[in-house]
Amino acid sequence: MRWLAVIILLIGLLLLWRMMFAGYRGRAQRQGELPRPGGARDWKTLSDQVEGVYVSTTDAENALDRIAAHGLGTRSAVRVGFVDGGIGFLRQGARSFVVAPADIVGIGHGPGMVGKWMGKGDGLLVVRWRLGDRVVDTGVKPRHPAEGARFARQVEELLRERNARRKQIEQGEQEGETS
């Protein structure tokens, strides 16, 4: 009688696992219209690296909406740094990708996101960027928090420089129109 209960329990767990897998695969298919993020031509140029755990990518408007398309919802070990094409996420066991500088919206720290909740205000490094028409957040749990803070400062400097260049271009265009 006991073995029958064990078999029923195992079958129930197997069915539950299958339903979870089917649901996640369905989410990835529904999000299939999202563009695939680019990759780096040469990962050897990855500089100012931060090692840690890639937690997930979620919709910036809805922190509980994990982006499953193109493997962006898969947790993995990661090295984050700068490559020629922008910010590179070199992942182990999952698809690596690069966020172009023009797509970066901001960077900050957060207490957690879907897949990892730290409970303290600065546990995760969160990069906000554009994926097609959608703004998303990508969370990384740095192995060493000081490295994460340093990387965030570098990205903030990159954003300040980009915004200053934009203002110069806009001012040049305005001066050209008034001449």
Score class of each variant (00 low, 15 high):
residue 143 R to N: 12
residue 37 P to H: 09
residue 137 D to K: 08
residue 86 G to P: 08
residue 165 R to E: 13
residue 78 V to C: 01
residue 124 L to C: 12
residue 51 E to M: 12
residue 61 E to H: 07
residue 42 D to L: 03
residue 76 S to E: 03
residue 83 V to M: 02
residue 159 L to W: 07
residue 21 F to N: 08
residue 88 G to M: 04
residue 6 V to C: 11
residue 65 D to F: 03
residue 17 W to E: 14
residue 75 R to F: 02
residue 45 T to E: 15
residue 41 R to W: 04
residue 66 R to D: 04
residue 26 G to H: 12
residue 149 A to L: 08
residue 34 L to N: 06
residue 35 P to H: 12
residue 107 I to W: 03
residue 145 P to Q: 12
residue 69 A to D: 03
residue 98 V to R: 09
residue 64 L to E: 13
residue 97 F to H: 11
residue 116 K to W: 13
residue 62 N to F: 12
residue 48 D to I: 00
residue 150 R to V: 06
residue 21 F to G: 01
residue 55 V to H: 00
residue 17 W to A: 15
residue 111 P to I: 01
residue 57 T to Q: 07
residue 139 G to T: 04
residue 106 G to L: 01
residue 60 A to C: 04
residue 131 L to S: 06
residue 67 I to G: 02
residue 119 G to S: 14
residue 163 N to T: 05
residue 54 Y to K: 05
residue 100 A to D: 12
residue 62 N to L: 12
residue 123 G to N: 11
residue 4 L to Q: 14
residue 116 K to V: 11
residue 43 W to A: 11
residue 170 E to W: 04
residue 177 E to Y: 09
residue 45 T to N: 05
residue 52 G to F: 08
residue 95 R to D: 10
residue 91 R to C: 07
residue 79 R to S: 11
residue 12 G to T: 14
residue 121 G to E: 15
residue 91 R to T: 03
residue 24 Y to T: 10
residue 43 W to Y: 06
residue 162 R to P: 00
residue 156 E to N: 09
residue 20 M to K: 05
residue 160 R to S: 02
residue 154 Q to L: 13
residue 179 S to T: 08
residue 75 R to K: 13
residue 172 G to L: 07
residue 6 V to F: 13
residue 152 A to H: 00
residue 91 R to V: 07
residue 160 R to E: 02
residue 45 T to A: 14
residue 2 R to K: 10
residue 163 N to D: 12
residue 142 P to T: 02
residue 131 L to Y: 06
residue 123 G to Q: 13
residue 107 I to K: 06
residue 173 E to P: 03
residue 153 R to L: 09
residue 110 G to M: 06
residue 122 D to E: 14
residue 55 V to E: 05
residue 65 D to T: 10
residue 7 I to W: 09
residue 103 D to T: 13
residue 44 K to G: 08
residue 150 R to H: 09
residue 26 G to M: 08
residue 82 F to N: 00
residue 157 E to L: 11
residue 93 G to I: 10
residue 153 R to D: 05
residue 65 D to K: 10
residue 122 D to T: 14
residue 26 G to V: 00
residue 157 E to P: 04
residue 15 L to G: 15
residue 94 A to N: 08
residue 31 Q to P: 06
residue 72 L to V: 04
residue 47 S to Q: 12
residue 2 R to D: 14
residue 114 V to R: 12
residue 81 G to T: 01
residue 46 L to V: 03
residue 75 R to M: 11
residue 98 V to F: 03
residue 146 A to T: 07
residue 154 Q to K: 14
residue 97 F to P: 01
residue 127 V to Q: 10
residue 171 Q to F: 04
residue 71 G to C: 04
residue 154 Q to A: 09
residue 125 L to Y: 10
residue 70 H to M: 01
residue 8 I to G: 09
residue 65 D to I: 00
residue 85 G to Q: 15
residue 95 R to F: 03
residue 166 R to A: 09
residue 177 E to G: 01
residue 69 A to S: 10
residue 117 W to L: 13
residue 73 G to V: 00
residue 92 Q to R: 13
residue 136 V to H: 03
residue 107 I to S: 00
residue 138 T to W: 01
residue 48 D to H: 15
residue 25 R to H: 02
residue 96 S to W: 02
residue 138 T to H: 02
residue 168 Q to K: 05
residue 16 L to A: 15
